[in-house]
């Protein structure tokens, strides 16, 4: 079964106004369970709009979207919020951890909105911190963490409700090369060892090359679909990918 089924997705802004703008012109995309794909494209290609639609933050003007077999676009906004919390895990370029809240509490936020009991939240947050190698920083506030550490906490947070898909928007964009590699390794690990479905949005072709499939967007259309290498990267490969 495909986790993501997008059919004929059209997104127009300012509908009916003189400055009407169509940013996606009928995009079809299927992502299978356990797949690690990347969506690449330059600024203005429609990447962000794609991510917003996949992540249920935005609704397409036309087209259909089924997430884990469920036609999500018929749901009201309040239901979309709940689905977003359960089925999608976001990783942002700028980490977006909530300040004044420890790493562990940040990871618990999606579980709070999903009504997970306190004990279970704490147990799962600790487990996730361990996966991303941050269990010794559980009580640290975001401003006491480095960029790479923040992003690792953010990845753990994205995993909090065991989502069907992880959406990562330029997750290494704000990190130095070495740290970026570390973060990319975590995604590869989540894919390989936990079978997570991951959609990586990037403009970095070499990073994309490590995923299984590379979707290239240009001016609101998918212009190419290539198989990526997705090798288990050696140190040399990683360095190249990062540059």
């Amino acid at each position: 079964m495909n986790i993501i089924e997008l059919r004929g997705i059209v997104k127009r802004y300012f509908v009916g106004k003189p400055n009407e703008l169509e940013v996606l012109h009928g995009v079809d995309l299927s992502v299978g369970e356990g797949e690690f794909i990347s969506i690449v494209g330059e600024s203005g290609s429609g990447k962000s709009t794609m991510m917003n639609i996949i992540g249920l933050l935005d609704r397409p003007t036309e087209g259909s979207y089924s997430l884990s077999g469920e036609n999500v676009l018929v749901q009201p906004d309040s239901e979309l919020s709940i689905l977003r919390g359960r089925k999608v895990g976001f990783v942002f370029q700028t980490f977006n951890l909530i300040g004044r809240m420890s790493a562990q509490k940040n990871i618990e936020v999606p579980m709070l909105y999903n009504h997970v009991p306190a004990k279970e939240r704490a147990r799962r947050a600790e487990h996730l911190l361990e996966i991303v190698g941050m269990n010794d920083r559980a009580k640290h506030q975001p401003n006491e963490l480095s960029g790479g550490q923040k992003q690792r906490v953010a990845i753990a947070r994205a995993m909090a409700n065991d989502p069907d898909v992880i959406l990562a928007d330029e997750p290494t964009g704000a990190l130095d090369t070495e740290t970026g590699l570390l973060v990319m390794n975590i995604f590869l690990d989540l894919h390989k060892n936990f079978g997570k479905t991951i959609v990586l949005i990037t403009h970095n072709q070499t990073l994309a090359a490590q995923t299984q499939r590379i979707i290239t967007l240009k001016d609101g259309n998918i212009v190419s679909v290539r198989a990526g290498g997705n090798p288990i990267p050696g140190p040399q490969d990683l360095l190249e990918a990062a540059v």
């Binding site: 309040s78 919020s81 709940i82 977006n96």
Partner: peptide, 16 residues
Amino acid sequence: TREIGVRKALGATNGA
């Protein structure tokens, strides 16, 4: 504002 956006992305409903 940004925190509110993040919370919404993490599953917060308008009511929450």
